[in-house]
Amino acid sequence: MYNTTTLSAVKEQLEQVAGRDFYAQKFADAGTDPAAVDSWDDFRSLPFTTAAELENDFEDAPPAGSLYDGAAMVTFSPMGEELRPVFDTADDLEKQAAANADVLERAGIEQGDRVVNTFGYELFGTGYVLHRALEHLGAEVFPLGPGDSDQVAATIETYDVDAIVGNPSFALKIGAEGGSVDTFVGAGEPFTSVPGRREAVKDALDASTAVDYFGTRHIMPVAAETTAENGLRVVDDYAVVEVVDPDTGDVLDDGERGEVVVTHLQKEGIPLVRYRTGDLAELAVEDGSVVLPDGVIGRTDERLKVKGVKVYPESIETVLAGFDGLTGSYRVEVSQPETTDRLVVVCEGEADADELRAALADRLVVTPDAVELVADLDETGIVDNRYE
């Protein structure tokens, strides 16, 4: 799936992290030698990194954790109940700018384009990272942030702006205020995994192109679409992506749904090896590219097995968001009246039950036995009555 050039980059990254206390201890505890990694099978023998382990490291070596080794920029990211620091060295910032510039160019933004950046600059720093990328690409950047949609729309009209980068939900508000651009790059929330969301954004902005971008504040970029709008392409000179079974940790075959695991290839500040993101997706190889064909479709935090299939209830949210008459509130009910599991999804609002059932079947990979629609839902979440 990945070539020998990528494996060489992985080996260089492992050499860089092996001396950090956090990873030296992890590798020793797992009985693995990162210096001996000479194949993808060897790589898959390395232990995962989890958010809980990073949280513990921050607690044990406050406030920066043991992975800290100096930084040019310190931003923050939610982790557990706290905001934890993210460190970028000067070299990190340059490499991120170059990688993201390539991504944005493939998304349709060109040198000389005027681009409104509606990501936040303060605290989390996402806007700043993409601002540097746009500058690297040679675009003119309007650092407006996630502020007043009416003001953004007016700026777009006054200065004949070509593109917007930002949250899809904010893009819809900008479009409602009359903002119109050729190109939109969306991130920070479910986008193309929500049925009809891409079309809604394109219609609102009168855009010819609307593409999805996936990254975390720790790893930007991970994957992004091109102007072809046909799935998130892994940025394989910056990150390695695996999809694993959330329960066993086994790497899954192409087309199987599981947890996204990401490894940095070019990172000095908080380098991550086999980091479990908790995001849910499928992996495929298309024309030599590693792709998340349906984007990120939910989280793996809660899951249950129904009729022998792993069901991820949070992925229901992206389906419901595609139906205008639904509020997004739902309850999953699982029972076993005889010997076979019965799955019922109760949703608040109005929709065509057959269409909704078909959409849920496609997303869950198991067809609900029934879909019920109610005006007011008094209880949400998961109700599993099989083992009472």
Score class of each variant (00 low, 15 high):
Phe48Thr: 15
Thr50Tyr: 03
Thr50Leu: 06
Ala51Glu: 08
Ala51Leu: 14
Ala52Gly: 10
Glu53Ile: 04
Glu55His: 08
Glu55Asn: 09
Asn56Pro: 06
Asn56Tyr: 08
Phe58Pro: 00
Phe58His: 03
Asp60Phe: 15
Pro62Leu: 11
Pro63His: 11
Pro63Gly: 12
Pro63Tyr: 15
Gly65Tyr: 02
Ser66Thr: 09
Ser66Gln: 05
Leu67Glu: 00
Leu67Tyr: 00
Tyr68Gly: 02
Asp69Tyr: 03
Asp69Gly: 14
Asp69Trp: 03
Gly70Tyr: 14
Met73Thr: 13
Val74Thr: 15
Val74Phe: 08
Phe76Lys: 03
Ser77Thr: 15
Pro78Leu: 06
Gly80Leu: 14
Glu81Gln: 10
Glu82Trp: 09
Glu82Tyr: 09
Glu82Phe: 08
Arg84Phe: 03
Val86Leu: 07
Val86Trp: 00
Phe87Val: 09
Asp88Asn: 06
Thr89Gly: 05
Thr89His: 12
Thr89Val: 08
Thr89Arg: 15
Leu93Ile: 06
Lys95Tyr: 06
Lys95Ala: 11
Lys95Phe: 05
Gln96Ile: 05
Ala98His: 06
Asn100Arg: 03
Ala101Asn: 03
Ala101Cys: 10
Ala101Leu: 02
Asp102Thr: 15
Leu104Ala: 11
Leu104Met: 11
Glu105Lys: 11
Gly108Met: 10
Ile109Gly: 00
Ile109Asp: 04
Glu110Lys: 15
Glu110Ser: 13
Gln111Asn: 15
Gln111Asp: 15
Asp113Asn: 14
Arg114Gln: 13
Val115Thr: 08
Val115Met: 05
Phe119Val: 00
Phe119Ser: 00
Gly120Glu: 15
Gly120Leu: 07
Glu122Lys: 02
Leu123Tyr: 13
Leu123Ser: 15
Gly125Gln: 05
Thr126Gln: 07
Thr126Trp: 12
Tyr128Asn: 08
Tyr128Gln: 08
Leu130Pro: 00
Leu130Lys: 00
His131Arg: 08
Ala133Tyr: 02
Ala133Gln: 02
Ala133Ile: 09
Ala133Arg: 01
His136Pro: 01
